[in-house]
């Protein structure tokens, strides 16, 4: 009987923990030595690169058109040469400032020209700096909607508009997730429900609304931006949250010291992320503008009841 109780406790602990992840908790402070010169580090892949796996990249808060954004775009293309990812998720703030035709070129098409030429698809979400009509832009694949779902392999992706989470969107999200039988469910949007950055930090009022839905319907991973840093949050109620908001803007030194939320953080340079999904494992690698690996690990999917 006692053994049975212990087994039950273990099972509950496993369910509560949700996932296992193999990556240490750590904060990388300050400047990584990055400069605005051309990136020079060699490509170092930590991902398994398995046959038939689903591969994608993540960028956030990109749309400045700066030389740093261009450098990051070049580094992404460099990594793609060894890790051919199929598509890129955008965490919003795709274009800062104006949105005239020349801005689309300067702040998006220019920095990612190589990826676009290689037919890499971009799936965007909207941030607080984005105009509504970006949903119609040919390269953002939003199909005219500011929240939408698409599926790749065993993974369902939900792009949300966290700038305007009205009842219609909440109801849509709830009903779509309820009928979704995908192995993995990934949500991405701009404002982070959890963040250790000083500038914005956790958006608790958004969390109050979306987190119960994520928990109820087995969302595995949540990707966000808004804070111009990298942060992997310690699992919250079994869900993995990432802040990836330094794809074109950087807020050096913005991560709070010894935040209880942080599993790993980096505010020394801009970055992008790579993901590889193979069966029950989702591998990730965060890479700086100069090509340094700033975080990596693997999330093991929890069993769904």
């Amino acid at each position: 009987m006692r053994r049975f109780v212990n087994a039950k406790i273990l099972l509950v602990a496993f369910i509560v923990a949700g996932f296992s992840i193999s990556a240490p908790a750590q904060k990388i402070n300050g400047n990584s030595g990055a400069r605005s010169s051309a990136p020079s580090s060699p490509v170092k892949l930590t991902l398994p690169l398995k046959d038939g796996s689903l591969r994608f990249a993540v960028i956030g808060d990109t749309g400045t058109g700066s030389s740093q954004q261009h450098a990051l775009g070049s580094m992404m293309a460099k990594y793609r040469a060894v890790f051919p990812f199929e598509f890129v998720l955008m965490m919003g703030d795709n274009m800062y400032g104006g949105e005239k035709p020349k801005d689309f070129e300067k702040k998006f098409a220019g920095p990612y020209r190589q990826l676009l030429a290689d037919k890499v698809k971009f799936y965007a979400s909207l941030g607080n700096h984005d105009q509504a009509l970006q949903v119609n832009y040919e390269h953002f694949n939003m199909n005219g909607k500011d929240y939408y779902r698409f599926k790749k392999g065993d993974v369902a992706f939900y792009a949300l508009n966290s700038n305007y989470m009205d009842k219609k969107q909440v109801e849509w999200l709830e009903s779509e997730l309820a009928k979704d039988t995908s192995e993995w469910k990934v949500c991405f949007f701009h404002h982070p429900p959890y963040s250790s950055a000083k500038k914005h930090g956790s958006d608790s009022q958004l969390r109050e609304v979306v987190e119960p839905i994520f928990l109820k319907h087995g969302v595995d991973v949540v990707l966000t931006g808004h804070d111009h840093v990298y942060e992997r949050i310690k699992p919250q109620k079994g869900i993995y949250y990432f802040v990836s908001g330094a794809g074109g803007k950087l807020r050096t030194g913005d991560i709070k010291d010894s935040s209880p939320l942080t599993a790993k953080s980096f505010d020394g340079d801009m970055h992008f992320m790579l993901f590889e999904v193979t069966g029950d494992e989702m591998h990730f690698q965060a890479i700086s503008r100069t090509g340094q690996t700033i975080d990596s690990g693997v999330i093991t999917r929890r069993k769904k009841s």
Binding site: G98, N128, D166, K167, V210
Partner: peptide
């Protein structure tokens, strides 16, 4: 169009009179 847009809190949007999708 060059200015930032405020995030509208979800909890508040639920309480204000509901708008069609064309108006915010």
């Amino acid at each position: 169009d060059s200015a930032e847009q405020s995030e509208m809190p979800a909890t508040l949007l639920a309480k204000l009179p509901q708008l069609p999708k064309e108006v915010r």
